[in-house]
Amino acid sequence: MSAGFFKPNVSRSVFGNVMVFLFLLVFGVFFAFPIVYAIITAFKPMNEILIFPPRIFVRNPTLSNFIELSQMADSFWVPLTRYIFNSVLISAAGTLGHLLLSSMAAYPMSRHAFPGHKWIKKVVVMSLLFTASVTYLPQYVVMSQLHLIDTYGALILPALQSSLGLYLMMNFMGTLPEEMLEAARIDGAREARIYWSIVMPNVKPAWLTLIIFSFQGLWNNTGGSFIYSEELKVLPAVMAQITAGGIARAGVSSAAALIMMVPPILIFLLSQKSVIQTMSTSGLK
């Protein structure tokens, strides 16, 4: 194997490297195939979708699915721009709010010895288990009592209090040198000031990680039973309606999916180095 592909190392056999390469190739193809297939399907004309035996690759690529998608968008009750507005608003407000609230909480949680911090940390760690789908129903009950169902808040507020974000931020802030904070304290800075001007500028990798995790969750959230008014629905809900049309809509659905997956992929690519840096502090003791 060429040196560019593998790390040169004495404890690595060539045979082993070949096996590693083959293993990754096989599984890589399995993981990439459905998405590559969706991308190809987005450019397939209808007569290549309804064909037997099915072909994987496209012979006459076309943009007709994207055109049909925009025509469908014109026939919606609510203009497509409204769904886009909803999705962008919810994703942006939820992501920024989550970043702000969880970093504000993470600073004292990781650095201050206030009474109760150990106890709160235990609850936060335990809540990592309770993913959104597990707490879905009890959350629905509480939100409906608060009259939040069918408002933007029903999608934004749960994202703000994601304990995964708080946990990752706490661990990352825990690695900052204490001398840095102490120096600011000696200069007379208050804790809120230290948080904003000292801690925040130094945890940018963690910001980016929270942004991608939060954005990806919000951007792909269909709203479920939390939103039922058409004018408050988001893009994934529209996409679910399109894909429900079955195989005749395979091309249009794929075109929609292709457009939808671009933002999270771009954000991940831009932040992936920071994500890895943050996740290296994610260990649980």
Binding site: P34, A38, T41, A240, S253, F268
Partner: peptide, 20 residues
């Protein structure tokens, strides 16, 4: 490769393709 393996999670609702 990190991107390839993480892509199904990242691209959210693309699992509809399995229905096809």
């Amino acid at each position: 490769l990190t991107l390839v393996f993480y892509l199904p999670v990242l691209s959210g609702n693309v699992y509809f393709i399995w229905a096809f």
